[in-house]
Design a protein around this nucleic acid. Sequence first.
DNA 1: CATGAATGAGCCTTCATTCAT
DNA 2: GATGAATGAAGGCTCATTCAT
Lengths: 212, 212, 212, 212
Amino acid sequence: MSALIVNKTKKKEDIILAALKVFEEKGLSNSTIKEIAETAGIGKGTIYEYFKDKNEIIHNSFFYFQKFFEMDMGKILLSNEKGSSKLKNLIRSIMSVLRSENNDYLDLMFDFWAEGIKGHEKGVMLTEMNKFYRSYRKLFEDVLREGIKDGSIRKNIDPFETSSIIIGTLDGVMVQWILDKEVIDLKKIEKNLINLILNGAGVSLIKKEESK
Amino acid sequence: MSALIVNKTKKKEDIILAALKVFEEKGLSNSTIKEIAETAGIGKGTIYEYFKDKNEIIHNSFFYFQKFFEMDMGKILLSNEKGSSKLKNLIRSIMSVLRSENNDYLDLMFDFWAEGIKGHEKGVMLTEMNKFYRSYRKLFEDVLREGIKDGSIRKNIDPFETSSIIIGTLDGVMVQWILDKEVIDLKKIEKNLINLILNGAGVSLIKKEESK
Amino acid sequence: MSALIVNKTKKKEDIILAALKVFEEKGLSNSTIKEIAETAGIGKGTIYEYFKDKNEIIHNSFFYFQKFFEMDMGKILLSNEKGSSKLKNLIRSIMSVLRSENNDYLDLMFDFWAEGIKGHEKGVMLTEMNKFYRSYRKLFEDVLREGIKDGSIRKNIDPFETSSIIIGTLDGVMVQWILDKEVIDLKKIEKNLINLILNGAGVSLIKKEESK
Amino acid sequence: MSALIVNKTKKKEDIILAALKVFEEKGLSNSTIKEIAETAGIGKGTIYEYFKDKNEIIHNSFFYFQKFFEMDMGKILLSNEKGSSKLKNLIRSIMSVLRSENNDYLDLMFDFWAEGIKGHEKGVMLTEMNKFYRSYRKLFEDVLREGIKDGSIRKNIDPFETSSIIIGTLDGVMVQWILDKEVIDLKKIEKNLINLILNGAGVSLIKKEESK
DNA sequence: CATGAATGAGCCTTCATTCAT
DNA sequence: GATGAATGAAGGCTCATTCAT
């Protein structure tokens, strides 16, 4: 690959990072190309050498944004632990990523969700978002199935629906945290969340599937 | 009252409903006053007889939007059922509201979330949203405490954190549904969600608090 | 004349007075019909029962405005004093009117001057303004001629040009006063002005026309 | 300097000149940015590359407008002539400037006066106008004092008040000329004005200060 | 007669995009 | 490739005027 292409990629990345910063601050619609260019330290016109229009910046920003949340789950998934343990570790791992590293951009989630179902080229983004969620669910689904197989997860849960629910929980808890950080304590939530997901809130002498 | 006196409240409502429709379709920023006026079947200038500016329309739309999700929980809360049953009914009730009646506007949630933390007058909306979530959490918290008292909910869960988690779950599941209705089946989710929340996914012979 | 007509005239006057008040505060262009109506204590629509449009209000306001400066010069003009004395009294009289009574509206002079030479129907106003100035000049001209006749005013001044100059002086001094009341002291100006007009600033042993 | 670099100052001047032309024709409020842009031969948006808003154009136009009346008085002020002669020449010089060169824009004086005491940012303009008048008065004041010293101007006039009066006269005469050019002949006025200011209109055998 | 709700022409201003250098 | 000056479409908002009551 020639140095030229590498540089081009590097510059696109610079622009996207600048865009994300501006988007995060002002929202998608209220961010201007001028501001993005300034943040990227380049000329306004230069942006158009790398992106067709503002929409393309938005889409590419979203792709990049998603990468923030890609994490190496290999260690967890390939470990010898039981499914329930992997589930626990997965949740912890995800929450720690959301909580710390990239939480600068986390609230862009809202903007992208909104843009995904509206916006001019919603199709592209929606597809991408759904792809993201589908593989995200698959991740949990696999762990749940493992757990069912190894006896650490109850048999009577539906792995697909439950993975969707667990992910929903993580998203939803983030929403409240983003909106009201003074009241929501993610650390405490994490502990309770794992407890709830594994043990439930209800009281029953013996778990049903074990009861027969 | 003579016809001369215009029902200001009614007309405001008309405008807000039109605004919600347009917002839902285009997003907050991409909706124009002209479009809202046309949707409401009135002149552009008339809008400004009822609202100071576009921001005020957005705020009021949000207030109105929230009302969609206000529901009469009285029957559930005042029933003689146990806490765990109330919790179950609460979740079912909320999901049925979200799923059906007003799901036309449901995805505006994203826009308002985004507007809440950014947007020009984020303060007002954020405050309002947090008020909403706080009382929403209080609702669940109370039911959970009841359940703890009546023995239907485990003692070792934190009612506050858990209420936050349950609400998060409902929000998060909605997100996936809105984004991917073809794949997400709310009915199935509902069943699994209640199961998960009450019983957890993990396997354990006897629930911890009963174990001693 | 029927009471109806009298009332109509009265109401027109009310509107004009309200208009003048608003105009004085905001300027011609920045005053709104709504504001004028409110100041007049009537409905916005009612204005149009009495005036065709905003321009007509402006014109009529100007006519009315002029009346503020109409004063009874009869006593001065018909007195037995010499021309130079009458001139002195005339100037004093005019300055006292400008200075006190109606100085509330005085600075509207600027707006009307501007409107007079621009504005949509400048013709009407300009004609009216020139009529005003022409009769204003005539007033001084007559007094000057009287003075020349009775020997109190020098023969070698041109009554017409000089009347124009004297009026100009009064206007111009007002301009500075309106703009910078802290620095301009009308009382002192008055004394000096009369001195200057009667005696001039130059030194010469004997006035020229008397010198031969 | 490369052609890339636009001469910002030159372009600002172009816009201001266009603005002055439009203002002169329509008045401050009734002039539109579109019209100014068209007159300047540029696009509407371009205006905003050089001026923040319409108000800034108005202010800058006023500054520019003032410059029309800046003239080189050096030759007059530094001459060896007596004060009374300098006064005469000063008046002639000013009137000739007003009469000829820039009389295209002269009637903007009214608009700026009006804007100065009303208008959105009256403060800035009023300050500037008063600064202008103060230094304008100082000019005459100095000449008058000189004349008093060299015996060509009477001792019993107040230099400050008199300078204010003389300037007022010039302004006021201009007003009448602008309003009624058919009737007012500036050339004749000039002659009479100098005569009046130096010799006064009154008859008295011997000037007071010489009378003892 | 009086009113004020309704209206849309028209204004100022922003900003994505183009293009000459 | 890089730039930023230029642009005009488009949007929010105002306000004189109309008109049904």
